[in-house]
Amino acid sequence: MTAIGGAILGTMSLATPLVLAALGETVVQRAGVVNVGLEGMILTGAFVAFVGTEMSVRLHWHLVGYGPNPYVGLIAAALAGVLLAVVFAVFVVKLSANQVVVGVALNLMALGLTGTLLRLLPRAAGGFLNTQALPQVFYSLTILTPMAFLAVPAVWWWLFRTRRGLELRACGEQPVAAESAGVPVLRRRTAAILFGGAMAGLAGGFLSVGDVPTFQEGMSSGRGFIALAIVTSGRWNPWGCLVAALLFGFADRLQIQGQALGIHLPHDLLLAAPYVATLLILAFGTGWSQSPAALGRPYRRA
């Protein structure tokens, strides 16, 4: 493996959770809903993937073998993401509450819930929390990375080349018109939110059983917010998201590489770089014009 190959794989690996979460959020926002609770969903996914992997020891399935099984954890993480998404959807779609406020509340809830449950774990007393990592399927990559990258064309094709995708986009552009054309707007929005939750859960799973098989309090460390920025700077298009996510992954990689080589880079300024880059992209890149017209507005049937 050459150095360049390693760098490419590293970048792809670091971009994986961002691609997963941003793809989910793209679908959600195309349906006209902003989910600021993405950060909380990722954090919950990370926690549940970790716990699920540990708990899978008790399953004793011949099918999955003995010992902690990270795939079980991954499925649990996706389900946990869906569960939080159900809460979000009840408030946002059913009760048409403010989307940003409910999202902020979900973030608080996830931070409190994972932090509290972490202390209740029997092993947490020992201090160090490790678990079984996902097996590497392609060089150093786990199953999630090819999954995330293949999901990009799949989501793009679904959004822009199928009838259902068109209907979903209509819910985000002109919900009133969509409804009168027979599209169940609320149901489509709910479905989009649930999909976004599952993707965010998987992104969280990557954090705790993918790269480094460990869980820390608040380990999502702003990735949900970066994913939100990626969706915006990627113009609500899966391909745009992929490019933006890879840029973020590359910046991350550069910083890790710099540390490993002992190059003296101001660590904190490098950490701030992706956020500054996002601001610059948003301010001087695309502008708001491409956003779904009904983004963030609750819809209620007459």
């Binding site: 408030f91 009760l95 048409s96 509450a97 409910v102 608080l108 931070l111 409190g112 819930l113 509290t116």
Partner: peptide, 27 residues
């Protein structure tokens, strides 16, 4: 045996209670 981060959970509960009741009432 609960950590202080429980506060975030409690805060979220307070917000969801108010947002939920308000929205439900409007409905």
């Amino acid at each position: 045996s609960v950590p202080t981060v429980l506060i975030y959970l409690v805060q979220a509960m307070a917000v969801l209670a108010v947002v939920g009741i308000r929205a439900w009432n409007a409905r």
